[in-house]
Design a protein around this nucleic acid. Sequence first.
RNA 1: UGGGGCGUGGCCAAGCUGGCAAGGCAACGGAUUUUGGUUCCGUCAUUCGGAGGUUCGAAUCCUCCCGCCCCAG
Length: 347
Amino acid sequence: MHKTAIALSGGADSLMSLLLLRETGAEVMAVHARFLGADDHALHERLRNLCAKLFVPFHLVDLRREFEELVITPFVRAYQSGLTPNPCATCNPAIKFGLLLDRVRALGADRLATGHYARLAQTPHGTALYRGLDAGKDQSYFLSRVPRERFGHVLFPLADWTKNAVQQILAERGLTPPAGRESQEVCFISSDYRDFLRERKARLGGPGPITLADGTVLGRHAGLWNHTLGQRKGLGIAYSQPLYVTGKDFAQNRLLVGPKSETLSPGCRTGIPNLLWPFELWPDEVLAQTIYRQRPEPAHVTVDQTGMTIAFPEPRAMPTPGQVAAVYSAEGQVLAGAVIEEAIHAA
RNA sequence: UGGGGCGUGGCCAAGCUGGCAAGGCAACGGAUUUUGGUUCCGUCAUUCGGAGGUUCGAAUCCUCCCGCCCCAG
Protein backbone atom coordinates (compact mmCIF):
# COMPACT_ATOMS: atom_id res chain seq x y z
CA MET A 1 0.00 0.00 0.00
CA HIS A 2 1.35 3.34 -1.03
CA LYS A 3 1.40 6.24 1.30
CA THR A 4 1.20 9.50 -0.57
CA ALA A 5 2.17 12.93 0.64
CA ILE A 6 0.44 15.87 -0.99
CA ALA A 7 2.24 19.19 -1.02
CA LEU A 8 -0.32 21.83 -0.14
CA SER A 9 0.52 25.35 -1.11
CA GLY A 10 -2.80 26.76 -0.09
CA GLY A 11 -3.93 27.24 -3.66
CA ALA A 12 -6.71 25.63 -5.60
CA ASP A 13 -4.57 23.18 -7.51
CA SER A 14 -2.99 21.38 -4.58
CA LEU A 15 -6.29 21.40 -2.72
CA MET A 16 -8.00 19.72 -5.66
CA SER A 17 -5.15 17.24 -5.85
CA LEU A 18 -5.72 16.31 -2.23
CA LEU A 19 -9.41 15.69 -2.89
CA LEU A 20 -8.62 13.51 -5.87
CA LEU A 21 -6.10 11.49 -3.89
CA ARG A 22 -8.57 10.83 -1.10
CA GLU A 23 -11.14 9.63 -3.61
CA THR A 24 -8.73 6.99 -4.83
CA GLY A 25 -8.71 5.57 -1.35
CA ALA A 26 -5.00 6.07 -1.04
CA GLU A 27 -3.40 6.66 2.29
CA VAL A 28 -2.68 10.37 2.27
CA MET A 29 -0.75 12.81 4.37
CA ALA A 30 -0.37 16.53 3.73
CA VAL A 31 2.68 18.74 3.92
CA HIS A 32 3.10 22.43 3.60
CA ALA A 33 6.61 23.63 2.92
CA ARG A 34 7.77 26.92 4.36
CA PHE A 35 10.07 28.70 1.97
CA LEU A 36 10.06 32.26 3.18
CA GLY A 37 11.06 33.99 6.36
CA ALA A 38 7.97 36.11 6.64
CA ASP A 39 5.41 33.34 6.56
CA ASP A 40 1.68 33.30 6.89
CA HIS A 41 0.77 31.65 10.17
CA ALA A 42 -2.91 32.13 9.49
CA LEU A 43 -2.44 30.08 6.36
CA HIS A 44 -0.75 27.32 8.32
CA GLU A 45 -3.70 27.16 10.68
CA ARG A 46 -6.24 27.11 7.89
CA LEU A 47 -4.36 24.26 6.23
CA ARG A 48 -4.10 22.40 9.52
CA ASN A 49 -7.83 22.80 10.16
CA LEU A 50 -8.74 21.81 6.66
CA CYS A 51 -6.70 18.64 6.94
CA ALA A 52 -8.17 17.88 10.35
CA LYS A 53 -11.65 18.03 8.84
CA LEU A 54 -10.57 15.66 6.11
CA PHE A 55 -8.84 13.38 8.62
CA VAL A 56 -5.56 13.84 6.82
CA PRO A 57 -2.37 14.14 8.86
CA PHE A 58 -0.72 17.51 8.36
CA HIS A 59 2.97 18.37 8.56
CA LEU A 60 4.73 21.68 8.30
CA VAL A 61 8.11 21.32 6.67
CA ASP A 62 10.62 24.09 7.16
CA LEU A 63 12.79 24.59 4.10
CA ARG A 64 13.48 28.27 4.54
CA ARG A 65 17.21 27.98 4.91
CA GLU A 66 17.49 25.58 2.00
CA PHE A 67 15.26 27.71 -0.20
CA GLU A 68 17.38 30.72 0.53
CA GLU A 69 20.54 28.82 -0.26
CA LEU A 70 19.42 26.86 -3.30
CA VAL A 71 16.96 29.20 -4.96
CA ILE A 72 17.24 32.80 -3.83
CA THR A 73 21.01 33.06 -3.61
CA PRO A 74 21.54 31.58 -7.09
CA PHE A 75 18.81 33.88 -8.36
CA VAL A 76 20.67 36.94 -7.14
CA ARG A 77 23.99 35.58 -8.33
CA ALA A 78 22.57 35.02 -11.78
CA TYR A 79 21.59 38.64 -12.10
CA GLN A 80 24.99 39.66 -10.84
CA SER A 81 26.60 37.72 -13.62
CA GLY A 82 24.32 39.04 -16.33
CA LEU A 83 22.01 36.06 -16.66
CA THR A 84 18.23 35.99 -16.52
CA PRO A 85 17.43 33.22 -14.03
CA ASN A 86 14.34 31.07 -13.92
CA PRO A 87 13.86 30.41 -10.21
CA CYS A 88 10.82 28.15 -10.61
CA ALA A 89 12.80 25.85 -12.85
CA THR A 90 15.50 25.77 -10.17
CA CYS A 91 13.13 25.26 -7.27
CA ASN A 92 11.49 22.17 -8.74
CA PRO A 93 14.60 19.98 -8.97
CA ALA A 94 16.32 21.43 -5.90
CA ILE A 95 13.46 21.95 -3.49
CA LYS A 96 10.08 20.53 -4.37
CA PHE A 97 11.22 17.30 -5.96
CA GLY A 98 14.56 17.39 -4.20
CA LEU A 99 14.57 18.17 -0.52
CA LEU A 100 10.83 18.16 -0.03
CA LEU A 101 10.52 14.74 -1.61
CA ASP A 102 13.30 13.52 0.67
CA ARG A 103 11.53 14.96 3.68
CA VAL A 104 8.19 13.36 2.99
CA ARG A 105 9.89 10.05 2.46
CA ALA A 106 11.54 10.48 5.83
CA LEU A 107 8.07 11.14 7.22
CA GLY A 108 6.92 7.78 5.95
CA ALA A 109 5.46 8.56 2.56
CA ASP A 110 6.79 6.87 -0.52
CA ARG A 111 5.36 9.28 -3.06
CA LEU A 112 4.91 13.02 -3.34
CA ALA A 113 1.93 14.50 -5.13
CA THR A 114 1.69 18.11 -6.22
CA GLY A 115 -0.82 20.27 -8.01
CA HIS A 116 1.27 20.69 -11.13
CA TYR A 117 -0.42 20.48 -14.48
CA ALA A 118 1.71 17.76 -16.04
CA ARG A 119 1.40 14.04 -16.65
CA LEU A 120 3.55 11.08 -15.76
CA ALA A 121 3.37 7.75 -17.51
CA GLN A 122 4.95 4.44 -16.60
CA THR A 123 6.54 2.78 -19.58
CA PRO A 124 8.75 -0.24 -20.15
CA HIS A 125 11.62 2.24 -20.30
CA GLY A 126 10.71 3.93 -17.06
CA THR A 127 8.76 7.00 -16.04
CA ALA A 128 7.98 9.53 -18.73
CA LEU A 129 6.93 13.15 -18.25
CA TYR A 130 4.31 14.67 -20.52
CA ARG A 131 2.56 17.97 -20.85
CA GLY A 132 -0.63 18.37 -18.85
CA LEU A 133 -4.01 18.21 -20.53
CA ASP A 134 -4.68 21.90 -19.96
CA ALA A 135 -2.43 23.44 -22.59
CA GLY A 136 -2.87 26.85 -21.06
CA LYS A 137 -1.66 25.75 -17.65
CA ASP A 138 0.89 23.13 -18.63
CA GLN A 139 3.88 23.30 -16.31
CA SER A 140 6.07 20.60 -17.78
CA TYR A 141 8.53 23.27 -18.93
CA PHE A 142 9.30 24.14 -15.31
CA LEU A 143 9.69 20.46 -14.47
CA SER A 144 12.12 19.69 -17.26
CA ARG A 145 15.20 19.92 -15.08
CA VAL A 146 13.97 17.54 -12.39
CA PRO A 147 16.13 14.38 -12.49
CA ARG A 148 14.29 11.55 -14.12
CA GLU A 149 14.54 9.06 -11.25
CA ARG A 150 12.72 11.53 -9.00
CA PHE A 151 9.56 11.19 -11.04
CA GLY A 152 9.38 7.57 -10.00
CA HIS A 153 8.18 8.86 -6.64
CA VAL A 154 5.90 11.61 -7.92
CA LEU A 155 2.20 11.92 -8.64
CA PHE A 156 0.40 14.65 -10.57
CA PRO A 157 -3.32 14.17 -9.87
CA LEU A 158 -4.22 17.09 -12.12
CA ALA A 159 -2.63 15.53 -15.20
CA ASP A 160 -5.94 15.16 -16.97
CA TRP A 161 -7.65 18.19 -15.51
CA THR A 162 -8.14 21.71 -16.71
CA LYS A 163 -7.98 24.74 -14.50
CA ASN A 164 -11.59 25.51 -15.27
CA ALA A 165 -12.75 22.08 -14.19
CA VAL A 166 -10.75 22.36 -10.97
CA GLN A 167 -12.32 25.68 -10.11
CA GLN A 168 -15.74 24.41 -10.99
CA ILE A 169 -15.48 21.33 -8.77
CA LEU A 170 -14.13 23.32 -5.85
CA ALA A 171 -16.93 25.83 -6.22
CA GLU A 172 -19.54 23.06 -6.38
CA ARG A 173 -18.20 21.66 -3.15
CA GLY A 174 -18.10 25.05 -1.54
CA LEU A 175 -14.35 24.89 -0.99
CA THR A 176 -12.23 27.99 -1.01
CA PRO A 177 -8.46 27.66 -1.34
CA PRO A 178 -6.90 28.58 2.02
CA ALA A 179 -4.51 30.99 0.38
CA GLY A 180 -6.34 33.90 -1.12
CA ARG A 181 -3.96 34.35 -3.97
CA GLU A 182 -2.62 31.89 -6.46
CA SER A 183 1.10 31.65 -7.05
CA GLN A 184 1.36 33.23 -10.44
CA GLU A 185 4.67 34.94 -10.01
CA VAL A 186 7.94 34.21 -8.33
CA CYS A 187 6.80 33.25 -4.85
CA PHE A 188 9.49 35.27 -3.10
CA ILE A 189 8.99 38.43 -5.10
CA SER A 190 5.96 40.49 -4.27
CA SER A 191 6.24 43.15 -6.91
CA ASP A 192 9.21 43.58 -9.18
CA TYR A 193 12.41 41.59 -9.24
CA ARG A 194 14.37 44.82 -9.50
CA ASP A 195 12.99 46.00 -6.18
CA PHE A 196 13.85 42.65 -4.69
CA LEU A 197 17.44 42.88 -5.87
CA ARG A 198 17.75 46.41 -4.50
CA GLU A 199 16.33 45.38 -1.14
CA ARG A 200 18.84 42.60 -1.06
CA LYS A 201 21.54 45.17 -1.60
CA ALA A 202 22.92 42.93 -4.28
CA ARG A 203 26.04 44.28 -5.88
CA LEU A 204 24.96 44.90 -9.41
CA GLY A 205 26.35 46.75 -12.38
CA GLY A 206 25.93 50.49 -12.73
CA PRO A 207 24.52 52.70 -15.47
CA GLY A 208 25.87 52.79 -18.99
CA PRO A 209 24.97 53.63 -22.57
CA ILE A 210 22.25 52.13 -24.72
CA THR A 211 23.39 51.72 -28.29
CA LEU A 212 22.40 50.28 -31.63
CA ALA A 213 24.49 47.49 -33.10
CA ASP A 214 26.53 50.08 -35.02
CA GLY A 215 27.43 51.88 -31.81
CA THR A 216 25.03 54.79 -32.13
CA VAL A 217 24.21 55.93 -28.60
CA LEU A 218 20.49 56.36 -28.04
CA GLY A 219 20.24 56.65 -24.29
CA ARG A 220 21.36 55.42 -20.88
CA HIS A 221 20.47 52.35 -18.85
CA ALA A 222 20.49 52.08 -15.06
CA GLY A 223 22.31 48.76 -14.99
CA LEU A 224 22.29 45.82 -17.36
CA TRP A 225 20.45 43.70 -14.79
CA ASN A 226 17.35 45.84 -15.32
CA HIS A 227 16.91 44.40 -18.79
CA THR A 228 16.77 41.05 -20.48
CA LEU A 229 17.11 39.89 -24.06
CA GLY A 230 14.10 40.55 -26.20
CA GLN A 231 12.68 43.05 -23.74
CA ARG A 232 10.89 46.10 -25.10
CA LYS A 233 9.47 47.83 -22.07
CA GLY A 234 11.57 50.19 -20.05
CA LEU A 235 14.08 51.44 -22.56
CA GLY A 236 12.51 54.87 -22.65
CA ILE A 237 13.82 55.58 -26.12
CA ALA A 238 11.52 57.28 -28.60
CA TYR A 239 12.51 55.85 -31.94
CA SER A 240 10.91 55.36 -35.31
CA GLN A 241 10.01 51.81 -34.35
CA PRO A 242 9.87 49.74 -31.18
CA LEU A 243 13.29 48.82 -29.87
CA TYR A 244 14.17 45.57 -28.12
CA VAL A 245 17.19 44.45 -26.17
CA THR A 246 19.38 42.48 -28.54
CA GLY A 247 22.42 41.95 -26.38
CA LYS A 248 24.55 42.93 -23.43
CA ASP A 249 28.13 44.07 -23.84
CA PHE A 250 29.59 43.45 -20.39
CA ALA A 251 33.07 44.65 -21.32
CA GLN A 252 31.79 48.13 -22.07
CA ASN A 253 28.64 47.95 -19.92
CA ARG A 254 26.58 48.66 -23.03
CA LEU A 255 22.99 47.62 -23.59
CA LEU A 256 22.51 46.77 -27.25
CA VAL A 257 19.12 47.43 -28.78
CA GLY A 258 17.59 47.03 -32.19
CA PRO A 259 14.36 46.41 -34.07
CA LYS A 260 12.31 43.26 -33.63
CA SER A 261 14.08 41.59 -36.53
CA GLU A 262 17.37 41.69 -34.65
CA THR A 263 15.93 39.74 -31.72
CA LEU A 264 15.71 36.54 -33.73
CA SER A 265 18.13 33.68 -33.43
CA PRO A 266 18.46 30.28 -35.09
CA GLY A 267 19.05 28.46 -31.83
CA CYS A 268 21.18 28.12 -28.76
CA ARG A 269 23.78 26.22 -26.84
CA THR A 270 22.90 24.90 -23.38
CA GLY A 271 24.67 23.40 -20.43
CA ILE A 272 24.55 19.67 -19.74
CA PRO A 273 20.92 18.63 -20.23
CA ASN A 274 18.75 16.78 -17.78
CA LEU A 275 17.71 13.82 -19.89
CA LEU A 276 14.17 12.69 -19.13
CA TRP A 277 14.29 10.07 -21.81
CA PRO A 278 17.33 8.15 -23.06
CA PHE A 279 18.75 9.96 -26.04
CA GLU A 280 18.87 6.80 -28.11
CA LEU A 281 15.11 6.47 -27.71
CA TRP A 282 14.32 9.98 -28.93
CA PRO A 283 12.12 10.21 -31.99
CA ASP A 284 13.63 11.54 -35.20
CA GLU A 285 11.50 14.65 -35.03
CA VAL A 286 11.72 16.65 -31.83
CA LEU A 287 10.40 20.05 -30.82
CA ALA A 288 12.00 22.62 -28.58
CA GLN A 289 11.05 25.78 -26.76
CA THR A 290 13.41 28.21 -25.14
CA ILE A 291 10.94 30.14 -23.08
CA TYR A 292 7.81 29.32 -21.15
CA ARG A 293 4.57 29.61 -23.10
CA GLN A 294 6.39 29.58 -26.41
CA ARG A 295 4.96 27.45 -29.16
CA PRO A 296 7.34 24.51 -29.51
CA GLU A 297 8.92 24.26 -32.94
CA PRO A 298 10.70 21.42 -34.69
CA ALA A 299 14.40 21.62 -33.98
CA HIS A 300 17.60 19.78 -34.66
CA VAL A 301 18.99 18.81 -31.26
CA THR A 302 22.38 17.29 -30.56
CA VAL A 303 23.81 16.28 -27.21
CA ASP A 304 27.49 16.00 -26.40
CA GLN A 305 29.76 15.84 -23.37
CA THR A 306 29.37 19.48 -22.35
CA GLY A 307 25.86 20.36 -23.36
CA MET A 308 23.16 20.48 -25.96
CA THR A 309 22.85 22.40 -29.22
CA ILE A 310 19.40 23.37 -30.42
CA ALA A 311 19.00 24.59 -33.97
CA PHE A 312 15.74 25.84 -35.42
CA PRO A 313 15.13 25.82 -39.17
CA GLU A 314 13.71 29.31 -38.93
CA PRO A 315 15.03 32.02 -36.61
CA ARG A 316 12.78 32.76 -33.66
CA ALA A 317 12.77 34.74 -30.42
CA MET A 318 16.35 34.87 -29.17
CA PRO A 319 17.07 32.37 -26.37
CA THR A 320 18.21 34.07 -23.18
CA PRO A 321 21.16 32.79 -21.13
CA GLY A 322 19.88 31.59 -17.76
CA GLN A 323 16.51 30.50 -19.08
CA VAL A 324 15.48 26.91 -19.68
CA ALA A 325 15.34 25.15 -23.02
CA ALA A 326 12.99 22.16 -23.06
CA VAL A 327 12.88 19.46 -25.70
CA TYR A 328 9.64 17.64 -26.44
CA SER A 329 8.35 14.89 -28.64
CA ALA A 330 5.43 15.56 -30.94
CA GLU A 331 3.23 13.77 -28.39
CA GLY A 332 4.19 16.22 -25.66
CA GLN A 333 6.69 14.05 -23.85
CA VAL A 334 9.48 16.01 -22.21
CA LEU A 335 12.77 14.60 -23.47
CA ALA A 336 15.20 16.98 -21.85
CA GLY A 337 15.63 20.28 -20.09
CA ALA A 338 18.72 22.44 -19.82
CA VAL A 339 19.88 25.91 -18.98
CA ILE A 340 20.65 28.11 -21.96
CA GLU A 341 24.22 29.34 -22.07
CA GLU A 342 24.20 31.39 -25.22
CA ALA A 343 22.13 32.17 -28.25
CA ILE A 344 23.43 31.34 -31.66
CA HIS A 345 23.67 34.52 -33.63
CA ALA A 346 22.34 34.69 -37.12
CA ALA A 347 25.07 34.68 -39.72
C1' U B 1 19.39 92.37 -38.82
C1' G B 2 21.26 90.39 -46.83
C1' G B 3 18.97 85.71 -48.41
C1' G B 4 16.58 80.96 -47.26
C1' G B 5 14.27 77.29 -43.90
C1' C B 6 11.80 76.01 -39.48
C1' G B 7 8.96 76.22 -34.71
C1' U B 8 2.25 70.87 -33.82
C1' G B 9 1.55 66.47 -26.98
C1' G B 10 7.90 63.65 -23.55
C1' C B 11 10.49 62.46 -28.76
C1' C B 12 9.74 62.10 -34.20
C1' A B 13 5.94 63.75 -37.30
C1' A B 14 1.18 64.32 -40.87
C1' G B 15 -1.99 68.24 -41.71
C1' C B 16 -0.73 74.18 -44.42
C1' U B 17 -6.25 74.46 -52.18
C1' G B 18 -9.26 77.25 -44.19
C1' G B 19 -14.29 73.65 -41.15
C1' C B 20 -13.78 71.61 -34.44
C1' A B 21 -5.48 68.13 -34.61
C1' A B 22 -3.33 61.36 -38.48
C1' G B 23 0.40 58.07 -37.28
C1' G B 24 4.96 56.04 -35.00
C1' C B 25 7.96 55.89 -30.51
C1' A B 26 7.94 56.57 -25.27
C1' A B 27 5.01 56.64 -20.85
C1' C B 28 0.97 55.05 -17.91
C1' G B 29 -3.28 51.61 -16.91
C1' G B 30 -5.53 46.88 -17.82
C1' A B 31 -5.86 41.75 -19.89
C1' U B 32 -2.92 37.31 -20.47
C1' U B 33 0.88 34.46 -17.43
C1' U B 34 3.73 29.91 -11.65
C1' U B 35 10.44 33.05 -14.28
C1' G B 36 12.69 37.69 -16.93
C1' G B 37 9.89 38.95 -20.89
C1' U B 38 6.66 38.89 -25.20
C1' U B 39 1.71 39.90 -27.08
C1' C B 40 -3.07 42.24 -26.86
C1' C B 41 -6.46 46.21 -25.33
C1' G B 42 -7.07 51.07 -23.41
C1' U B 43 -5.48 56.19 -21.92
C1' C B 44 -2.48 60.26 -23.38
C1' A B 45 -2.56 68.16 -27.35
C1' U B 46 -10.17 72.06 -26.23
C1' U B 47 -4.71 72.76 -28.82
C1' C B 48 -0.83 73.75 -32.96
C1' G B 49 6.16 79.46 -30.48
C1' G B 50 3.53 84.40 -28.82
C1' A B 51 0.15 88.58 -29.83
C1' G B 52 -3.19 90.72 -33.03
C1' G B 53 -6.10 90.69 -37.81
C1' U B 54 -9.29 88.60 -41.98
C1' U B 55 -13.44 84.99 -41.75
C1' C B 56 -19.65 82.16 -39.84
C1' G B 57 -15.17 79.32 -38.88
C1' A B 58 -7.74 79.15 -39.06
C1' A B 59 -2.62 74.82 -36.95
C1' U B 60 -3.70 76.12 -41.98
C1' C B 61 -4.41 83.29 -44.97
C1' C B 62 -2.22 88.43 -43.35
C1' U B 63 0.85 91.57 -39.79
C1' C B 64 4.21 92.10 -35.95
C1' C B 65 7.19 89.90 -32.14
C1' C B 66 10.16 85.67 -29.92
C1' G B 67 13.35 81.38 -30.72
C1' C B 68 16.23 78.00 -33.60
C1' C B 69 18.99 76.35 -38.16
C1' C B 70 21.55 77.11 -42.93
C1' C B 71 23.99 80.11 -46.78
C1' A B 72 26.29 84.47 -47.61
C1' G B 73 29.15 89.00 -45.88
